[in-house]
Write a protein that binds this DNA or RNA. Structure first.
Lengths: 205, 205
DNA sequence: CAATGCTTTCAAAATATTTTGAAAGTTGTG
DNA sequence: CACAACTTTCAAAATATTTTGAAAGCATTG
């Protein structure tokens, strides 16, 4: 509304309410990825708009950029703040709140993985353990067929458990990696997919 | 609440319609994980029941085990078959179709990652590239402020692009790793997160 | 080839999720 | 204290997703 493309206003405070085509592409695809990844699409879209904006934006700016209601913007920003992927910033002389995206991607991912995946996986691990425990009586029951059945189930649940533990470690690796600036993992990945021959991928120098 | 362990019927055809408590736990948690991970919860539940069953099960067995409608079972099985995580098996002398879960977890994950994530990420990569391309005009336009704005956006989108490429490589690594029996990745993860012995995953810490 | 037993399809119904916007809440100001 | 200027809340509306079950489709068998 207040923007005036023709006015040679100073760069700092004039607001652009429509996002440029490239930003639209990005916010759309990030929205999708993020949704796919279990969050609300609008979280991804709002984050993207902030991420691509040189200055912090107000809730109203976002409302216009993405044609969302004030409520949706407020709630979504709240979630993004809770996930620590968006920050409030004070713009001096302004009464409104302004928001900026966390721009350190690894930091961001690390935080989210850490809070979300770890909880999820930890819960799965617990449950698998519990399920195995529940098998115990049958494992030493008197019915041979039931015993065999339980044995097989224990075996299979153990596989799931092992897998969950690997997942857990993968997340931990990503998280700790992120703190140390992505080096080891990235190096590992480069080696693993760049050099296509599996001949000797295990001995560095 | 429990099957009839006393039926002297040959193992092949007597049917258990209620699942045991441990299987219920597992199918619930796998359902959740799978949903969380973007599939339908019932896919995870059905797969789990099959995975924990010593014998293949018919659609009807599944219908009873999980209290689903025949349509839901049929559609869900169809999807699971398409993803290659469940197979049809012939039970001799039976007219119905029987189904069994893929039990090689890594193989399964690898297939799914390969088809699904790769497509998703590849699309994101393309889009980021396209978005950067769209910035070109502004990058060499005459308006200095706009130029600076575009420069920053290009920078940021490039970060996303790099991240997407790393993700892509991560998926590729997991996939190729899975084919060669998980060795290198697992070893890497073990080193990275400080666990002890690679081959016997029995002690939690 | 008609009947039977099973499977798939699909439109409608049930559920779940997301968005809206008006009203209530907060905070800074005259 | 009363008045802005914003923000948050939340019940209702809009959407989207999942499930149902009756009917159509198929394949085997007598």
């Amino acid at each position: 509304m207040r923007e005036r493309p023709s006015s040679p206003d100073a760069a700092g405070s004039a607001k652009v309410s429509e996002i440029e085509p490239s930003a639209a592409l990005v916010s759309d695809v990030v929205g999708r990825l993020i949704e796919f990844w279990g969050f609300k699409r609008s979280m991804g879209r709002i984050w993207s708009v902030l991420y691509l904006s040189p200055e912090p934006l107000s809730a109203e700016d976002l409302r216009h950029s993405l044609s969302l209601s004030s409520g949706a913007v407020s709630m979504t920003l709240g979630e993004l703040l809770r996930w620590g992927v968006v920050r409030k910033v004070w713009v001096q002389g302004e009464r409104k709140d302004y928001f900026a995206a966390e721009v350190q991607l690894w930091k961001m991912i690390s935080r989210v993985l850490n809070e979300r995946e770890k909880a999820e996986i930890a819960y799965a691990i617990e449950t698998f353990e519990e399920a195995i425990a529940k098998l115990e009586p049958a494992l030493r029951g008197s019915d041979a067929a039931a015993r065999e059945r339980a044995r097989l189930q224990k075996e299979r649940i153990s596989q799931l458990l092992e897998l969950a533990r690997i997942g857990h470690r993968l997340v931990e690796t990503l998280v700790s990696t992120a703190k140390l600036d992505a080096e080891p993992l990235v190096r590992f990945l480069l080696r693993a997919s760049g050099a296509s021959s599996p001949s000797s991928p295990s001995s560095p120098h």
